[in-house]
């Protein structure tokens, strides 16, 4: 692949998804896009770049971006955020007017394990939520992942990652070698195509936002912009969960770490104006 082709492909992916491909990711392009090249009988990545530069390449471009997103997920990934969520949900339930659901956004939801883990956390709390409903939104830029998430069917391997067996038997129905999320949980989650490069305000306001292991793929200006948007959509007593390797430091002043917690961020309190 010529540097020109690489730069073109990297530019396209960045513009459409925010994902930054550094020059050492050439191998990743080869492996992830290989199946598409073979199907389209293209000679290589240079041919692909050429095709994408031509008109009417929209569907192909979307497929390239989809192939380059990382869709790693597991139930209750990293554990700690869900421990925090378990304490937070009853507080929010008590603070909201009757009948108003707690709105949770699983941003870049991949195959849906995070959103379903949120639903299970709420279900396990039971009476502590006083009958308060959750309205969980899962969004992703991969339509394939959204379809999988919506179907809610997981392999034997997937249900053994992060999911305690007691929750497996309680919240899933066995279908041969696979396991389907119970209808009560599926009913709490909506799925929607959404690109974090777009203005997220159309999604509404949220009490809780999970945006974990997404920012790591973005450059600093994009991180800043996304974090600023998230802060703007968050209830004053809400929180944002970020991945273990992610931070707001030096990127936004609108979110601050929750005292004594890791990966939990709150809206910055408006500082008193100097008199």
């Amino acid at each position: 692949m010529t540097p020109d082709s690489f730069n073109f492909l990297a530019g396209l992916v960045k513009a459409r998804s925010g994902i930054v491909l550094t020059a050492d990711k050439g191998y990743m392009l080869e492996t992830r896009l290989g199946p598409m090249l073979r199907r389209e009988s293209m000679q290589g990545l240079d041919a692909l770049a050429q095709r994408l530069r031509a008109p009417r390449a929209e569907a192909l471009a979307a497929e390239v971006v989809e192939a380059l997103t990382t869709n790693e997920s597991s139930f209750f990934r990293d554990g700690k955020p869900f421990e925090h969520l378990k304490k937070l949900l009853p507080k929010l339930a008590a603070a909201r007017p009757p009948g108003q659901p707690i709105r949770v956004w699983s941003a870049a939801c991949s195959s849906g394990q995070e959103a379903y883990s949120i639903a299970m956390t709420a279900a396990e709390l039971g009476p502590a939520l006083g009958g308060r409903k959750l309205d969980i939104l899962g969004t992703d830029i991969s339509r394939e992942m959204l379809d999988r998430a919506q179907e809610g069917v997981f392999t034997q391997f997937e249900v053994q990652r992060g999911l305690p067996v007691t929750m497996l038997v309680k919240h899933f129905k066995q279908e041969g070698q696979r396991w389907r999320v119970a209808p009560e949980l599926r009913a709490q989650v909506r799925w929607q195509f959404f690109n974090l490069m777009e203005d997220p305000r159309t999604l509404g306001r949220f009490d809780i936002i999970f945006c974990r292991n997404v920012l790591i793929y973005f450059d600093a200006p994009t991180k800043s912009r996304v974090l600023g948007s998230l802060a703007g959509m968050l209830a004053p007593d809400g929180v944002v969960y970020l991945g273990g390797a992610e931070t707001v430091l030096g990127l936004t002043e609108r979110l601050v770490p929750a005292p004594g917690e890791r990966g939990v961020y709150e809206p910055a309190r408006a500082t008193a104006k100097a008199g």
Binding site: Q156, F157, Q160, R161, G162, V165, L168, V169, Q174
Partner: peptide
């Protein structure tokens, strides 16, 4: 890997349940 077997083991007092095949990640999680 039948649900009925898992339930039988849990009611007999097992703490966790691994369905083979397993790998290091699954054992660590369990």
């Amino acid at each position: 890997a039948e649900l009925s077997k898992i339930l039988e083991a849990l009611s007999a007092g097992a703490q966790e349940y691994v369905m083979k095949p397993f790998d290091a990640d699954i054992l660590r999680d369990k």
